[in-house]
Nucleic acid binder design. Structure first.
Lengths: 231, 231
DNA sequence: TTGCTGACTGAACGTTCGTTCAGTAGATTC
DNA sequence: GAATCTACTGAACGAACGTTCAGTCAGCAA
């Protein structure tokens, strides 16, 4: 059903159609909330044919997981250059954002971001591997940016990388809520620009004024009220 | 089954047990992935009794949504003071983090954070309301912090509030992945300290070195590669 | 004692689920 | 032309689903 722009192998087979429908429906309703019959109806074929091609519903889910993983594996191979390029203040002063990378890899109405969300939050192995690979890329990028003087060195580099990566992914995860709150979808070009502008401001100049000198490493700052209500 | 500490009405009724089980199972497996029979078995009663108390599975889901919403509505009534207190560099230099507030309100092994995750990501009205209320609180806090000179004023205050709030929530959403990556669960006291230390460092001093002067408002920094592969 | 109420159950209901299977149609191979 | 293969279908399977219902039982008011 209407795969969008140019580079796809255009002659979409029923097999591909089934997988595309599964991707979209899984992303919208979750795997448990999507039936094989739903997918078959979406792809204009019979439920039996879905299982003919993918063996089982679980097999189809794995195929979709793989598709998404490969999409990013390919993007990741060009990512370091792209990200480093985005980061270079000379060529544009970008943000080095994974979200921007994602935005550049899929059309704005793609179900992929929503599927990535499920992947990251459903506790499965595919999601764990995806996050791992992103974390490793981000860590390497962070190191190189520190080495080249673009980024400030962190006392806790793993925490720093995780912090920046997670902030970045959060925008994908909470996309609808952000759009509601600020009135612009952050996964459109204009929305991304607005989001990036603020993120860069914080990442360059901070959000808070400098604390009292000899700033404590803040390690002691746990929550002080320890209500621990049951539930 | 073993509700934890003090303030709960301790004499847990079967009705409460059913709701507690539903909260946990919905959080773990999703609503569609949890059957009424599962919940009944967990609560040690019959499926018919679950529906006797809550009318339908959907009614039970709404009851659980309400329970969580009320938990935070109560927390929110004391939140401004607590958050402002956390923010005050004089009394502790905390982070004003919603995640810390959450951590202080529920025990570390509570299913509530996972349920909040589902609430925020399942596109329902309860999640939308929850985010809205958090955004409004965060916005008000942000304004007061700017007024008192603790926070730098932002060019785009809505975006700034959304950015900080979303960063904060991200840690809850991606909790397991962060724990994997940095080796510490950020929703434990020690994990939170580590996370907070780095977050404060970024929020006070930035993550990147100051860009070339006359820093562009960065609005032009969209992704420059416009691959838009189909999918 | 009687009658009522609310918590609770076992058995069953109709539906929908994932999956199986025998079989058809259209190519391709020998 | 027969044999083989792959894509595909309609009908059915047993299991699991949410839900209904008649009925049991304990506590309590009259």
């Amino acid at each position: 059903m209407a795969t969008t722009s140019e580079p796809a192998p255009i002659a979409s087979t029923v097999r591909d159609e089934i997988r595309a429908c599964a991707l979209r429906l899984f992303a919208e309703r979750g795997v448990a909330g999507t039936s094989v019959r739903d997918i078959a109806a979406c792809a204009g074929t019979s439920p039996a044919n879905v299982l003919h091609h993918y063996g089982s519903k679980e097999g189809l889910r794995e195929a979709v997981d793989d598709e998404v993983a490969h999409l990013f594996a390919h993007a990741a191979s060009t990512a370091p250059d792209q990200l480093a390029d985005m980061m270079d203040p000379a060529t544009g002063g970008g943000s080095g954002s994974f979200a921007e990378l994602l935005l550049s890899a899929v059309p704005p109405d793609s179900p992929v971001p929503a599927y990535v969300r499920r992947l990251l939050l459903d506790g499965g192995d595919a999601g764990r591997r995806l996050f791992r690979s992103w974390f490793d890329s981000a860590r390497a990028l962070q190191d190189s940016l520190v080495a080249s003087g673009v980024a400030r060195p962190a006392e806790d580099p793993d925490a720093r990388t995780a912090f920046l990566l997670v902030n970045d992914l959060a925008m994908i995860l909470l996309r609808e809520h952000v759009a509601d709150a600020i009135g612009t979808d952050p996964l459109t070009t204009e929305g991304a620009a607005r989001w990036t502008a603020d993120a860069l401001d914080v990442y360059h100049h901070g959000a808070f004024r400098t604390p009292p000198d000899g700033s404590p490493t803040a390690g002691s700052t746990g929550p002080r009220t320890r209500g621990h209500a049951a539930t």
